[in-house]
Structures are given as C-alpha cells and as structure tokens.
Amino acid sequence: MSLRLSTVILPYRRWHEGARSAWMRAEELGFHAAYTYDHLSWRSFRDGPWFGAIPTLTAAAAVTERLRLGTLVTSPNFRHPVQLAKELISLDDISGGRVTLGIGAGGTGFDATALGQEPWTPRERADRLAEFVPLLDRLLTEDSVSYEGHFYSAHEARNIPGCVQRPRLPFAVAATGPRGLKLAARHGQAWVTTGDPKLYETGTPEESRAAIRGQVEKLGKACAEIGRDAGTVEKTLLTGFTPDRGRPLESLDAFVDFAGRHQELGFDEIVIHWPIPDSDFAANEKVFEQIATEAVAQLS
C-alpha cells in the first residue's frame, strides 16, 4: 500500500474568514484526510479564537465530497461516550461515511480542568480511556446500550440507525503505553503516535526513529497477544512533535526523506499541520502545497 498524506487544520479561524477555504483546499490538493484537534483550547491559542471540533467537521463535510474527516484526537477529558456517540453517528451520516475518530487518553492541559475538576493522574486517564473506548465501540455498533461502569454509565442509550460505515466508523487510537496499545490492538482500525515526547527537546532524529520503531514493535506484541495480525492496524504518524520539528516541511526533498524513513518503519499515513503563521506550525505555503501534490508520487 502506498503512503497516504493527510493534514491537520486547527480550528482557530472563523468559518467564513479562512477556515472554510482551507478545508476545501485540502480536498483540492488531494490529501487523504483532514483532521482537527478536539480541545476546548490549546497551548498558545488559549487566548485567541478556538472553535469546536464536531461543528467544524460537520461544516467541512458540507463543503467537501471525497476528503476523509476526523479528530486527532478526542479524549475523555470533557467527553462522555453517550453524547459523543450521538454526535459521531450524525457526523458520519452528514459526511456520507467519511469520518475517522482519533481518540486518546488526553493530557493535563486546559481541557483537564475546564469543567472544574482536578487534573487526572496518568493512571486515571488510562483507566478512563480503558472504559471509554469499549463503551463507545458498543454505542456505535448496537441499537440500544445499557452499561454501569466505574466512570461511565449508559441506560438504554439509543443510536439508531447507527453509522453509515459498518460495523461503525473507524477508531484511530493514540497510544504509546502498554494499556493504550492493547486498546489500539483490540479496538483500533488505526494506531496514532507523535513519537516519544521525552526526545522532543534534546533527542536526535535517529533516536526518535529508534523510539518509534520500539512503539511499533510493542503494538505488534499487543496484537499477537489477542491473535490479531498487526498488519491490519494502520499506522499513523502525526508530525510536528519529533526532534525534527518543522524541518521536514522546509522542502519537498526534506519531507520525502523524512516520510520515507518512517514509511520503512511501517507507517501507512503521515499527517502534517496546515501552516499557521507566527506559530509552532509556521511553514512556507508554496512548499506545503508542493509536498501535498508531489510527495506521495515520489514515495510510491
């Protein structure tokens, strides 16, 4: 299978002041998918505009026809499986079955306290995700679900007619730890990584690739434990968080080299951020569009 190239369009612009045209342009450029972050606010964008993921994706579905759409990623920080399932089924219907749910444990950023709670520990985030994902799986595949868990409950939750995609829309599970990788192996149609965060500041590209290779191997072991072929789990790299930072977007050749090295590790999809001036995701727009239109052919 040839490598797929996708993008992330952060929801920081009003729909009619640049956001709409970006989603339409992503389809014109031939990206496999366009994702957005599912946060209430995020890092340096906290004191500026930031819009909701599901409404944004719904609007994007209305102005595109072929582009896959999704979150990278949704987390339990401010979501409940019952409410989320209803929104996802609606979005999958509106888009004609073009939705992928990226899902992960979340972190300790603004989302973690916006509802007034104390930030959860890493263990509690993992505990919640371990309950959240299987329940969401059921909610998206069964007409009626009742469940009583430690963190989440559902009482005769109805989700008729279900997803356009059968048996449900695909999950892309973001994980690097053993519990998350087990969830990816059991419930994920895809697995997502950003690399090893401990290497972001002081690591080298070579160390990063070695760490990612180790993550791929651990995913393979998690699949083997349940008798699943690891090759049936698509592997997605969300770029911008490895020691390379923005260097792969400096030129077409730089990106082809970067993507090719990660394709050799088994990745099926590389995701790059839509350029945002004066931010960590600043990039030359002409180079970005050249990468979008020419890189995949060079990597085939």
Rank of each mutant, 00 (worst) to 15 (best):
R158Q: 15
T58D: 03
D253W: 11
P243D: 13
G231D: 08
M1E: 08
A222P: 08
A185Y: 08
A19E: 06
T232H: 15
F78I: 14
T56R: 03
F51A: 01
P119H: 08
D137K: 15
E124C: 05
F78R: 10
E124Q: 14
G162H: 09
V233N: 01
E156L: 14
E87V: 10
A222Q: 10
R20W: 08
S6N: 00
H155L: 15
D244G: 09
L135W: 14
A85E: 00
I226Q: 01
A26L: 08
K221L: 14
S146V: 14
V145I: 07
V173W: 02
D111K: 04
E87I: 10
H273F: 15
S300K: 12
L140P: 06
V216D: 02
A295Q: 11
F288R: 07
T193M: 11
G240N: 10
T56W: 02
N284C: 09
T141W: 05
E289A: 15
A297C: 08
A283M: 07
N159Y: 11
V271D: 00
Q290D: 09
G96D: 10
L136I: 00
S44N: 11
Q290L: 12
H262D: 07
S75A: 14
L5K: 02
L115Y: 08
G48N: 07
P55K: 05
E156M: 15
M24W: 06
G104Y: 01
Q165D: 12
P122F: 13
V63M: 09
W191D: 01
E87L: 15
A282T: 13
A62W: 11
R79D: 03
L199M: 10
P277E: 11
S146D: 15
G48R: 15
G104R: 01
L115E: 07
G203S: 02
S90P: 06
E207F: 07
P275R: 11
K86L: 11
S21Q: 12
S44I: 15
K218C: 08
L265I: 06
E156K: 10
T36C: 02
G266L: 07
L67F: 03
L181M: 11
V133S: 06
P275G: 10
Y37Q: 02
T58A: 10
A230G: 09
V133M: 13
F110C: 03
P81I: 05
L88Q: 04
D137I: 13
S90Q: 14
T113D: 07
Q117N: 13
I272R: 02
G214P: 03
E148M: 14
S2K: 04
Y35A: 00
A59G: 11
F171N: 00
G106V: 10
L181C: 07
R213I: 03
S279V: 00
E217S: 09
E285F: 12
R25W: 05
H273V: 09
K235L: 03
N159D: 11
A19Q: 11
G260Y: 10
G266S: 08
D278W: 12
S6L: 00
D137F: 15
Y200W: 13
P277K: 12
T100Y: 01
F255G: 01
H187W: 14
L115D: 07
D244C: 10
A61Q: 01
G188E: 01
A211V: 03
D127F: 06
E207P: 04
G97L: 13
D244Y: 14
A61Y: 02
A112P: 02
F281C: 09
Y152V: 05
L72T: 00
K86F: 09
E65R: 15
P275L: 08
E294Y: 06
V173F: 07
F267A: 06
A22G: 05
F45K: 06
